[in-house]
Amino acid sequence: MSQEQDLLIKGHEYDGIKEFDNPLPGWWLITFYATIIFAFIYVIHYEFGGGPTLSQELEVAMKEVQAAKPAASAAPQESEEELMKKAQDPKLLAIGAEVFTGKCASCHGNELQGLIGPNLTDKYWIHGKGKITDMLTVIKAGVADKGMPPWDGILKQDEMIAVSGFILSKKGSNPANPKAPQGEPVE
């Protein structure tokens, strides 16, 4: 206890609160100095030493992402006939139905009758002639100014084929409350 008495600072008493004269803990001081040194190095590297800026870092990262994307020409575009055959597959149709309910029904309606986007069961088409390849083009790229989102990168190629096949399978299904025709009739 007498040791403690020595540590008390004379004359420091406020409403009964006294103060010890303990030194700054060594590990604490080292931590503090270390963070200061880190700060200097960091600032010097990034602000004066030519360290990459954020936009340079992003550019590098995006190049990597781009490089990972399979080149468009790598997978040859399947022909309409091949796609048609593929799209008959009931397994694929089931996937297509699922994709449609999850991603497309909010705009095209649960029964494809049209809502925000056009009716997909009638014979009227805005883009192309209602072939699978036509649909794939629209689905992939979207129609930016008309509010059809681009699905490339969000849906896989197979899913896009599946959902196109599903749409085709509903052709002429005459759902209730159809949206008024949009586009050109295709016989």
Binding site: H12, G16, I17, K18, E19, F20, D21, N22, P23, L24
Partner: peptide
């Protein structure tokens, strides 16, 4: 800095640390 020393009735650990 007020209520802990009051509640436990002990001096503050380090005046120098307070300053820094």
């Amino acid at each position: 800095y007020y209520f802990i020393p009051k509640a436990v009735n002990r001096p503050v650990y380090s005046y120098r640390l307070s300053i820094v």
